[in-house]
Write a protein that binds this DNA or RNA. Structure first.
Length: 900
RNA sequence: GGGCGCGUAACUCAGUUGGUAGAGUGCCACCUUCACACGGUGGAAGUCACAGGUUCGAGUCCUGUCGCGCCCACCA
C-alpha cells in the first residue's frame, strides 16, 4: 500500500512570499516555453487570440491591467483544456499619440523640408530646454526619435505584462511600425486597390487645423460647447426686402454661397428662386428649398457656406454651388479678392475693405470681428439698420477630432478613401456572423455601420506612420497625375516612396517634369491596426501559417473602439478574404472612478486621479501592495462589458484569498498516511458538491465569463472547503485508529485542493503554481498547473456517489448550530464540550447520523467522557438544527497559572 | 431625438428557467483554535429607483416614469 507524500509545513515560509514567487515562476515559465505556440498542431486544437496592441503612449494605468487580465484568464483556461495557444503581443507604436509624446518628451518638431542629419541624438527635455523654441529635425530624424522613445515605452509595458503574469508567447511580439507590419499594411493597400475599393479625390474633408491632417468619421467626437445664435439680416436682389437668418458661425459669411428654406414654409416661399444679397460683402447667392431645412430651427431660413458642416457639403454637391473656401489648412482666413471670378460682389471695394480686417485671423477671432462689423449700419445689404439683429446663447454639439483641441473644419484637400458605403449590407452580415460577448455589444457595431455616412479616409498628413506604396507621374508641366497612381510591387514592400523611386524610374527623375513624385501621406493608424489578425497569421507571406491562425478565435477589446478597431478589422477581412476576422469578440468594460458628478472613465491619456477623489494608484503600486494574483482577482471579478468602479477593498480581498489558499494548502498537504479511496459518506458528499462547482465554472468559461466561475469557486473554497470541510474532517484525517476513514479524508482533501487549485489557476497563476509544485506536479505528472487538465467529471470517477447528496450541508448546519451556541456562551469554538443536546426534525436527525461522528469531532464533543443527545423536535424548520443544551469542559489553565 | 446598459445593505458587487433577498468590505460582540490573527465564530444592517400590470407568487416578465452612464443621430 502506497502512502501519500507529505510536505513539512516547517520548511515553508510563514507567509506566501509573492514578489519572489512571481519573479521565480515568470522566469520558469519563460524558460520552459510554457506559453509557446506549437505550429505543428492542427487548427482545431488551437486557440488563437487577436490581442489588442496597446498604444504605447508611456502612461500605464489600471485600465490596461483590467482588460489584459481578462484576456489572460480566458487564455489560461483554454490552455488547461489542452488547446494549443496562440497569444501574441503587439505594440501600437505608430501614429499621432506617439508623435505628440515625442514632441513633448524631447521638445522637438518635425520639419519635412529639412535634410536628414546622421547621428542626431535625443535627450529628455529639461524645463530649461522647454522654455526655448522646440528643436527642428528632418522627417527621418523625427522617426528615429519616435522609434527610440517607443522602444523605451515598450520595455515598460513588457515588464508590467510579465509581472502581471500574462501568458503571452513573447516570440510573437511585434510593433505596428516594424517592417513586417508595414509590409502587411501596404499589401492590404495593394489588394484593396486591385479590388477597386480605393480612390483618391480632392474634396471637402474633415480637417484638424492643429494636427494639420485629415481625420475619419470614426475619429470624431461630439463636444457640447457654449455658442451663440446670431440673427443676421440678408438683402434680396432688386428689392428693398430683407430676411433674417440665424447662424452660429458668422465668420463664414464671406464663404456664403446660397440660402435655403423649407419647401413648405410660407414665410419665405416668395423668395425662392430669387437671389439673396449677403451683408458686408454684398454677394448675390441663390435661394432654394430643401427638405433638410428645419422650419423650427433658428428663423427657418439659413445660409450655406463652404463649409460649415456636412449638410453644406451635401447641398454644395447637389446644387452645384460655388466654392468659396476661406478657412485655410491652418485654420486661418485665407486672402481672397472680391470682384474676381468666383468672388462676385455688388460692391467689391467695400467687400474687400471688410475682408481685409479678417484675412489671416483664426476662425474664433474672425467671428468676433465679423460680429463687430455686422453691428455697423454700413454693413447692411439693404437699408440703414445694422444687419446684426439679435443674439441668443445656446449650447450645441460640435465635432472634434477625438484627440484634438479645436473644432474640425471641412477643407477641400486630396485624400485617399476606402469604399465602405456601398458594402454596408455585407458588413452588417459579417457583424452578425461574429459572436459578441456580451451579446448587446453587437448593437454598437450595427448602429455604427447603419449610420456610416462617409467612406473611410485612410490618408493622414503625418510623419510617424506607414507610407502609402504610391507615387504619381508628373506631366510635362511638372503637375502630378493623381488618377493613375504608380504602385509598388509586392516584392518591394515595405517601401518608403520618399526614399525609393517607383518601378521603372530612377531617383534622378524625382520631382522632374515627366518624372514622378512620392505620395508623402501615411496611413491612418487603423489601416494597419485593422490587420492585426493578418499581421499575426503572416497573410500573403506564409499561407500555411495563415491557414492555421486565421480567422482567430477571440478578439478582446474595449467597447469604445467597436466603431474603429472592431469595425475596420471586420471590413478588412471582408474585403480581403470574404471572411470574418475572428469568431468571438470579448468586450471588457471600463474602470471608472466614482465622483459627485457621476462616473469617470480612467482615461488612457488623462491618467488617473481625476474627479477630486483619492487617485487610483499606478499599476506597479497596486502590484506591490496586493500582489499580481490579488490584482488579477480584482480584474477577474468584473463581468464582461460591465464598467467597474475601482475599490481597493477588492484586490485586498484577492490578497487575502491568496494567503488563505497558501495556508489551507499547507494543512492539506501536511496530512499523510496510507492511500485509500474516498469512501466515507461526508467525503463523498463533499466531493459531489464540488463536482457541481466544476460544472458551473466550466459552463461559465464556455461563454468566456470568468467572473461567475471565479465567484462560484471562491464561495465554495471559503464556505465549503476551508470553513467547513477542513474542520469536519480534520480529526479523522489524523486518526491513527481509523486508517480507512483517515485515508478517505486525505484523498478527499487532496482531490478538493487539486480541483480548487485548477479552478483558480486562470485567475491566480502564481499561488496555484506554487502549491501545485509542492506535491501535485509529481503526483499528476504535470510540472505546471497551467498545463494540467481543466477539472471535470473525470477527476471524480473514483468517488462513489454519496447515499445522501445533501449530507455535507446537513453536517455543516449541525456544526454551525453548535458554533452558534459556543459563541453566545462566550467561549471559543475550540472549547471541548461535555454534553450537548442537538435538536432537529426527525428527518434531519436521520440524515445527520451518517456524518455525526465528524460533526462531533469538529465540535470537540468527542472526548472520552463527552455526551451527546439527538432530540427530535418537529416544530423546527426543515434543515434547521438547534442546540437545546450545552456544557463545556473547563478552560485548561495557561502554562504558569495554577488551576483554581 | 433614437438605441443600449445600469439603478439591490454604508461601500464594491452577485442574484441562472419567476418560488422565504446574497457575498466581500465596513460595523458590533465574542474567541488565541493543534493550516491561517494577513485568523475564527456569531450578529446587526435592504420599501431590490418609482408607479402600474401579468401571476397563487415578481429583484427577476410586461408597460410607463425618474436618475446615471454609454453608443448613434442632429449640428444652420
Amino acid at each position: 500500500m502506497s502512502a501519500y507524500r507529505t510536505i513539512d509545513p516547517a520548511t515553508l515560509p510563514k507567509h506566501f512570499d509573492a514578489p519572489h514567487a512571481e519573479e521565480r515562476w515568470d522566469q520558469q515559465w519563460q524558460a520552459s516555453g510554457l506559453h509557446h505556440y506549437d505550429p505543428a498542431r492542427p487548427r482545431h486544437e488551437t486557440f488563437v487570440v487577436d490581442t489588442p496592441p496597446p498604444t504605447v503612449s508611456g502612461s500605464l494605468h489600471v485600465g490596461h491591467v483590467f482588460s489584459y487580465t481578462h484576456t489572460d484568464v480566458i487564455v489560461r483556461q483554454q490552455r488547461m483544456r489542452g488547446l494549443n495557444i496562440f497569444y501574441p503581443m503587439g505594440w501600437d507604436d505608430n501614429g499621432l499619440p506617439t508623435e505628440r509624446r515625442v514632441q513633448n518628451y524631447y521638445h522637438v518638431r518635425c520639419d519635412p523640408k529639412l535634410a536628414y542629419e546622421p547621428g542626431m541624438t535625443f535627450e529628455p527635455a529639461s524645463s530649461k530646454v522647454r522654455s526655448k523654441p522646440a528643436r527642428l529635425c528632418s522627417r527621418p530624424n523625427f522617426i528615429e526619435a519616435c522609434n527610440q522613445l517607443t522602444r523605451e515605452d515598450e520595455q515598460a509595458f513588457l515588464a508590467l505584462w510579465r509581472r502581471l503574469g500574462l501568458s503571452v508567447d513573447w516570440r510573437q511580439e511585434y510593433g505596428t511600425i516594424n517592417d513586417h507590419c508595414r509590409k502587411v499594411a501596404q499589401l492590404s493597400f495593394l489588394d484593396l486597390h486591385a479590388k477597386g475599393m480605393l480612390y483618391n479625390t480632392h474634396a471637402p474633408t474633415l480637417w484638424d487645423v492643429d494636427f494639420q491632417t485629415a481625420v475619419a468619421q470614426a475619429e470624431l467626437e461630439d463636444r457640447e460647447l457654449d455658442s451663440t445664435f446670431n440673427d443676421i439680416a440678408f438683402g434680396v436682389e432688386d428689392s428693398a426686402e430683407e430676411f433674417v437668418i440665424s447662424t452660429t458661425r458668422p465668420e463664414l459669411l464671406p464663404a456664403c454661397v446660397a440660402v435655403a428654406t423649407h419647401p413648405d414654409d410660407p414665410r419665405y416661399a416668395h423668395l425662392v428662386g430669387k437671389r439673396a444679397i449677403t451683408p458686408l460683402f454684398r454677394v448675390p447667392v441663390p435661394i432654394f428649398t430643401s427638405e433638410l431645412v428645419d422650419k423650427e430651427k433658428g428663423t427657418g431660413i439659413l445660409m450655406i457656406c463652404t463649409f460649415g458642416d456636412q449638410t453644406d457639403v451635401l447641398w454644395w454637391r447637389e446644387q452645384g454651388l460655388a466654392l468659396r473656401q476661406i478657412i485655410g489648412l491652418q485654420g486661418r482666413l485665407l486672402p481672397v479678392e472680391y470682384g474676381t471670378p468666383g468672388w462676385e460682389s455688388l460692391d467689391p471695394a467695400a467687400a474687400n475693405a471688410f475682408y481685409a480686417e479678417l484675412a489671416g485671423l483664426r476662425a474664433d477671432k474672425a467671428r468676433e470681428r465679423v460680429l463687430a462689423q455686422l453691428a455697423r449700419p454700413e454693413a447692411a445689404a439693404t437699408g440703414r439698420e445694422p444687419p446684426l439683429r439679435g443674439q441668443r446663447a445656446i449650447t450645441h454639439a460640435v465635432k472634434f477630432f477625438e484627440k484634438g483641441d479645436r473644432p474640425l473644419e471641412l477643407v477641400p484637400t486630396r485624400q485617399w478613401f476606402c469604399r465602405l458605403l456601398d458594402r454596408k449590407a455585407e458588413l452588417l452580415a459579417r457583424g452578425d456572423e461574429v459572436k459578441w460577448h456580451p451579446a448587446f455589444m453587437g448593437h454598437r457595431f450595427r448602429t455604427w455601420t447603419e449610420n456610416l455616412g462617409l467612406d473611410w479616409c485612410i490618408s493622414r498628413q503625418r510623419y510617424f506612420g506607414v507610407s502609402f506604396p504610391v507615387w504619381y507621374r508628373l506631366d510635362d508641366a511638372g503637375e502630378p497625375l493623381y488618377d493613375v497612381p504608380l504602385l509598388a510591387t509586392p516584392e518591394q514592400l515595405p517601401v518608403d516612396p520618399t526614399v525609393t523611386p517607383p518601378p521603372g524610374y530612377g531617383e534622378a527623375q524625382r520631382g522632374q517634369p515627366g518624372g514622378f513624385q512620392a505620395e508623402s501621406d501615411v496611413f491612418d493608424t487603423w489601416f494597419t491596426s485593422s490587420m492585426t489578425p493578418q499581421i499575426s497569421s503572416h497573410w500573403q507571406t506564409d499561407p500555411e501559417r495563415h491557414a492555421k491562425l486565421f480567422p482567430a478565435d477571440i478578439r478582446p477589446q474595449a467597447h469604445e473602439i467597436i466603431r474603429t478597431w472592431a469595425f475596420y478589422t471586420i471590413a478588412k477581412a471582408m474585403a480581403h478574404e470574404a471572411s470574418i476576422p475572428w469568431h468571438h469578440v470579448v468586450i471588457s468594460g471600463w474602470v471608472v472612478q466614482r465622483s459627485e458628478t457621476g462616473n469617470q472613465k480612467i482615461s488612457k491619456s488623462k491618467g488617473s486621479g481625476q474627479g477630486g477623489k483619492k487617485p487610483i494608484p499606478p499599476p506597479h503600486e497596486l502590484l506591490d501592495t496586493y500582489t499580481a494574483d490579488g490584482v488579477r482577482y480584482w480584474a477577474a471579478g468584473a463581468r464582461l462589458g460591465t464598467d467597474t468602479a475601482f475599490d481597493e477593498k477588492v484586490p485586498a480581498g484577492g490578497k487575502r484569498l491568496v494567503t488563505k489558499i497558501f495556508n489551507a494548502s499547507k494543512f492539506v498537504l501536511a496530512q499523510g498516511g496510507d492511500v485509500h479511496p474516498v469512501s466515507t459518506e461526508l467525503d463523498r458528499a463533499f466531493a459531489h458538491k464540488l463536482l457541481g462547482v466544476v460544472h458551473e465554472a466550466t459552463s461559465s468559461y464556455d461563454e468566456f465569463e470568468f467572473a461567475p466561475a471565479l465567484r462560484a469557486t471562491e464561495t465554495f473554497f471559503w464556505a465549503s472547503f476551508t470553513d467547513s470541510y477542513l474542520e469536519l474532517c480534520k480529526v479523522r484525517a489524523r486518526a491513527e485508529d481509523d486508517p480507512v476513514g483517515r485515508g478517505s479524508a486525505i484523498s478527499a482533501l487532496r482531490l478538493g485542493l487539486s480541483v480548487l487549485l485548477r479552478l483558480f489557476a486562470p485567475v491566480l497563476p502564481y499561488i496555484t503554481e506554487e502549491v501545485w509544485s509542492w506535491a501535485f506536479a509529481e503526483q499528476e505528472g504535470q510540472p505546471s498547473i497551467h498545463k494540467a487538465p481543466w477539472p471535470s467529471a473525470a477527476d471524480f470517477a473514483n468517488v462513489a456517489l454519496p447515499a445522501d447528496p445533501g449530507a455535507f450541508d446537513v453536517a455543516v448546519a449541525a456544526l454551525a448550530a453548535i458554533n452558534r451556541a459556543k459563541t453566545s456562551a462566550g467561549v471559543g469554538v475550540g472549547r471541548p464540550i461535555q454534553r450537548v443536546v442537538l435538536a432537529a426534525r426527525e428527518a434531519e436527525l436521520a440524515r445527520l447520523r451518517p456524518v455525526l461522528a465528524d460533526v462531533l469531532a469538529a465540535a470537540r464533543a468527542d472526548g472520552p467522557t463527552a455526551e451527546h443527545v439527538l432530540e427530535a423536535r418537529e416544530g423546527l424548520d426543515e434543515g434547521a438544527f438547534e442546540v437545546a443544551e450545552v456544557t463545556f469542559e473547563p478552560k485548561p489553565p495557561k502554562p504558569g497559572e495554577t488551576a483554581p
